[in-house]
Amino acid sequence: MSTNDGYYIPEPSKWPIIASLTLFVTVFGAVNTIHGTSIGMPILMIGLISVLAMMYGWFSTVVAESPSYNGQVDVSFRMGMMWFILSEVMFFAAFFGALFYARVLVMPWLGGAGNNAMTHEVLWPAFEAVWPVLANPDNAKFVAPKEAMGAWGLPAINTLLLLTSSVTLTIAHHALRKGERSKLNLWMIVTLVLGVSFLVLQVMEYVHAYGEMGLTLASGIYGSTFFMLTGFHGFHVTIGGIMIAVMLVRCLKGHFTADNHFAFEAAAWYWHFVDVVWLGLFIFVYIL
């Protein structure tokens, strides 16, 4: 609830409408790239670069203004970030939902369970309902992978990397709160290195999947759910990694004080969020 300390209202800003425009250019470029038009890729690149430039400009403005913000603005930012993370959770929920629905309901139904005996008999009599799916109903159209992705090689190492990075980030946060700046910088660098290592291993896993296992986006529902879930997670780790990198630069520049560092905390919350999503992935996509 408000107090009587006075309100903060930001000045009019050009960034919101620039942001809308850059988003539009990006999606316009994306559709054209997908449709294979020659202008597609250049427009997409212009869009993405201008999105990044816009974010740099907008956030710089906010950073410059931040000394004049009051406690109420701080709370608004915090609440805003929390609700944003909830929306991200729901985005992943859609894909987890698809995974569970496919595994728990679609598989047995395609295999003839319930009242689907004739579907099975007439359409794809050879199909067997097992997960991971190594033989699709129509194997000519969707070539199934040769083997399933195991959990205890790279993915297990990745789990360790990401969990450790959450711990190191928390150590950095505690250092910030105690004003131990060199310790803060050190542990931020460690966090970033762990995050980047995760992404490198993830890329190696994808190369292995495409090159040797025949596991692709187009290899049926197993490949679809595998790549969409891990892919969107990797994308979010990339965003989180950019956030951590920006925070590291700001730490090195001497930004933030022991009790005023919302941006740092927001990045940390986001990092913990991608960590928790990974745990869900590790259990439901890799182990089970």
């Binding site: 698809a98 496919a102 309901l105 359409l123 794809w124 699709n136 986006l217 679809s224």
Partner: peptide, 22 residues
């Protein structure tokens, strides 16, 4: 809509029974 997009353009089979979707 993202699943639609990838089903349409990138060969996924979320909504395609012949690939194990529905």
């Amino acid at each position: 809509v993202t699943m639609m997009l990838t089903d349409r353009n990138f060969g996924t089979s979320f909504f395609e029974a012949s690939g194990g979707g529905d």
